[in-house]
């Protein structure tokens, strides 16, 4: 009985995590800026760690936990490297020349501003 509930829970959580991965990838694709994508990638690593843990329970092969820890380490380093990159790269030049918002636009927030089509940056 309890084992049945557990296997149902495993299926359910695998489904939920898959949905979470897809939604996070959606944010990576939509952007709109590099920091948004990095946040989404960080989140992607966290969800992948969770997925690995669920697979460890499903298969009973608990070496997966070590893999999850290693993935967390790599993901953290990647995020730190991205943050350093954003900090050093003069990202400001791209945003400020693209649009100087009028004063009232600042109060409406930048959800609107982000929807403005951006020039592709290489």
């Amino acid at each position: 009985m309890a084992q049945n509930i557990l296997s149902a829970a495993i299926i359910l959580s695998l489904g939920l995590l898959t949905l979470a991965l897809l939604l996070t990838v959606l944010r990576v694709v939509r952007g709109p800026t590099l920091p948004d994508r990095v946040v989404a990638l960080d989140m992607l690593v966290a969800v992948a760690i969770g997925l690995i843990a669920v697979i460890a329970v499903k298969t009973g092969f608990f070496l997966y936990i070590d893999i999850a820890i290693a993935l967390g380490l790599v993901g953290f380093l990647a995020t730190v490297a991205f943050a350093r990159f954003i900090m050093s790269h003069r990202y400001r030049a791209a945003t400020e020349t693209a649009a100087k918002p009028p004063p009232e636009a600042v109060h409406r927030g930048n959800a609107r501003r982000n929807r403005r089509p951006r020039r592709p940056r290489r």
Partner: peptide, 19 residues
């Protein structure tokens, strides 16, 4: 089973929030 469902629900919530 409870922990698995709760954890994946939180992960899904975070993914919805990020969108």
């Amino acid at each position: 089973a409870f922990l698995l469902v709760a954890g994946s629900a939180f992960a899904l919530t975070a993914a919805i929030g990020i969108n």
